[in-house]
């Protein structure tokens, strides 16, 4: 065994902050690795990327990637990302955050960004609870699941994130578990290359809180469960694509459609109504390309 102190992905992570704070077996690290590999494969220079994260375990992603990254307030990575995109539409803006941040506190921002079809990629790491604050119930917690705020089981039905995104108007929706590392990477690559609101959900184990409280075993047990109970169903209706942690998890690429984006309409409107502003914008773009 050869001992080496560098890793091939080291040029895209802030190695001075590694090892990261995520628990042993947490899937966020896998999702980050997939994302960084997708960036490398996309051929787009890393300086053209901007990563925006909110609060929570997954919110720390922005601090670990060696890209232009922003750690925003709770639930607000999407408005921040939309602002970035509108200010400089040559940037590839990626929102990398968790389910509690994007869907609970930032739920409205999420559906409205999808409705407007703003040209951003949203990667949501779903671990079924609020991990960082102590395992409270989230809108993604399955019904009857135990969390620290639902000791007698959760009485609420959870959101199906893929269905929510597709119903709100996302042009690309896919879901993978963190065990499907290769598929997750390919999915992120596809989402990065697509125009419009693209959404990738990564199901991650939360060994310290959710798995422990629901007797799902260690992170390794959860990964084995994912291996045995994942059903790949490309093009399935997201409405029927359920996540059942006692049954089957439906994964795959559910939606891949074309729809004019917010930027397209903006340009059209500018060209018609404010042609001098449009000329200014085009000039700015040229400058950006020259840099």
């Amino acid at each position: 065994m050869e001992m080496k102190e560098t890793h091939p992905i080291d040029d895209l992570i802030r190695t001075d902050r590694i090892p990261h704070i995520w628990c042993s077996g947490c899937g966020i690290g896998i999702a980050v690795h997939c994302f960084l590999n997708a960036i490398r494969k996309s051929g787009i220079p890393p300086k053209n990327f901007a990563v925006v994260s909110g609060i929570g375990c997954s919110g720390r992603v922005a601090g670990y990637v060696k890209l232009d990254s922003f750690h925003t307030t709770h639930g607000r990575p999407i408005p921040f990302a939309v602002g970035l995109k509108l200010a400089n539409d040559r940037l590839k803006v990626v929102v990398f955050s968790g389910d509690g941040d994007l869907i609970a506190i930032g739920g409205n921002h999420f559906i409205h960004a999808a409705r407007r079809n703003v040209d951003i990629t949203v990667i949501c790491v779903n671990n079924f609870n609020y991990g960082m604050t102590g395992g409270q119930a989230a809108p993604t917690t399955p019904v009857r699941a135990r969390t620290s705020t639902t000791p007698y089981g959760n009485f609420e039905f959870p959101f199906n994130l893929a269905y929510l995104a597709a119903g709100s108007g996302a042009v690309y929706v896919s879901r993978w578990t963190t065990l499907h590392a290769k598929q997750l990477e390919d999915s992120m690559l596809e989402a990065l290359g697509k125009k419009g609101f693209t959404f990738v959900e990564a199901i991650s184990p939360c060994p310290t809180l959710y798995n422990r409280m629901n007797k799902l075993g260690t992170a390794l047990d959860f990964m084995k469960f994912c291996k045995e109970h994942s059903v790949i169903r490309h093009g399935a209706d997201p409405k029927t694509a359920n996540i059942d942690l006692r049954g089957d998890i439906v994964v795959g690429r559910f939606v891949n459609v074309e729809r004019p984006t917010f930027t397209d309409f903006l340009e059209e409107g500018l060209a018609q109504g404010l042609p001098h502003r449009k000329a200014l914008l085009d000039e700015e773009r040229k400058e950006f390309e020259h840099e």
């Binding site: 050869e2 890793h7 995520w22 590392a181």
Partner: peptide, 30 residues
């Protein structure tokens, strides 16, 4: 982890993909 003595690594790099801590990868032998 370490390579089991006598076992063959085929360099598929799946260990690197599945590692949450950027701690392992496979590559050509030095």
């Amino acid at each position: 982890p370490r390579l089991i003595e006598g076992a063959t690594c085929v360099g598929c790099n799946f260990c690197a993909m599945i590692c949450p801590d950027f701690a392992i990868y496979s590559g050509p032998e030095v």
